[in-house]
Simulated assay, not measured.
Amino acid sequence: MKTKLNCPCGEYIQGENEDDLVEKTQAHLAADHPGMEYGRDEILFIAR
């Protein structure tokens, strides 16, 4: 299960599970990178 992700902007995102990680990553993108949208599969591909 992948629960960690380092955004290229330097933000470290950690979720309790994959669903939580996807939610937190999408919220980060919406807040800090408007116009950049990634789906679940794309987020989990770059997560660790």
Score class of each variant (00 low, 15 high):
Met1Ala: 15
Met1Ile: 09
Met1Ser: 15
Lys2Asp: 15
Lys2Pro: 15
Thr3Lys: 15
Thr3Ile: 13
Thr3Gly: 03
Lys4Tyr: 14
Lys4Trp: 14
Lys4Ile: 08
Lys4Asn: 07
Leu5Phe: 14
Leu5Asp: 02
Leu5Gly: 06
Asn6Lys: 13
Cys7Val: 07
Pro8Ala: 15
Pro8Thr: 15
Cys9Gln: 08
Cys9Ser: 11
Gly10Asp: 13
Gly10Trp: 02
Gly10Val: 06
Glu11Val: 12
Glu11Tyr: 01
Glu11Leu: 06
Tyr12Thr: 14
Tyr12Arg: 12
Tyr12Glu: 14
Tyr12Asn: 13
Ile13Tyr: 05
Ile13Glu: 08
Ile13His: 06
Ile13Gln: 04
Ile13Gly: 09
Gln14Cys: 10
Gln14Gly: 02
Gln14Trp: 08
Gln14His: 11
Gln14Ile: 12
Gln14Ser: 15
Gly15His: 04
Glu16Phe: 06
Glu16Val: 09
Glu16Pro: 00
Glu16Ile: 08
Glu16Lys: 15
Glu18Ile: 05
Glu18Ala: 12
Glu18Arg: 02
Glu18Tyr: 01
Glu18Gly: 10
Glu18Trp: 01
Asp19Pro: 00
Asp19Leu: 05
Asp20Asn: 03
Asp20Ile: 08
Leu21Asn: 09
Leu21Lys: 03
Leu21Glu: 09
Val22Gly: 12
Val22Pro: 14
Val22Tyr: 04
Glu23Gln: 12
Glu23Trp: 04
Lys24Trp: 00
Lys24Gly: 06
Lys24Ala: 09
Lys24Thr: 12
Lys24Glu: 05
Thr25Lys: 01
Thr25Ser: 11
Thr25Ala: 09
Thr25Arg: 01
Thr25Glu: 02
Thr25Cys: 05
Thr25Pro: 06
Gln26Met: 11
Gln26Ile: 07
Gln26Val: 10
Ala27Val: 11
Ala27Ser: 08
His28Val: 07
Leu29Gly: 08
Leu29Trp: 05
Ala30Phe: 04
Ala30Pro: 00
Ala30Gln: 13
Ala31Arg: 13
Ala31Asn: 13
Asp32Gln: 11
Asp32Pro: 02
Asp32Lys: 07
Asp32Leu: 00
His33Leu: 11
His33Ala: 04
His33Trp: 13
Pro34Ser: 04
Pro34Asp: 09
Gly35Cys: 01
Gly35Pro: 01
Gly35Gln: 00
Met36Pro: 00
Met36Tyr: 09
Met36Cys: 02
Met36Gly: 00
Met36Ser: 02
Glu37Asn: 10
Glu37Trp: 09
Glu37Lys: 13
Glu37Phe: 08
Glu37His: 11
Glu37Met: 11
Tyr38Cys: 11
Tyr38Pro: 01
Tyr38Gly: 12
Tyr38Asn: 11
Tyr38Gln: 15
Tyr38Trp: 08
Tyr38Val: 13
Tyr38Lys: 15
Gly39Ile: 07
Arg40Gln: 02
Asp41Phe: 04
Asp41Tyr: 02
Glu42Gln: 14
Ile43Phe: 03
Ile43Met: 03
Leu44Ile: 07
Phe45Ile: 02
Phe45Asp: 11
Phe45Gly: 00
Ile46Pro: 00
Ile46Phe: 11
Ile46Gln: 10
Ala47Gly: 10
Ala47Glu: 00
Ala47Trp: 06
Ala47Thr: 09
Arg48Lys: 13
Arg48Ser: 15
Arg48Tyr: 05
Arg48Val: 09
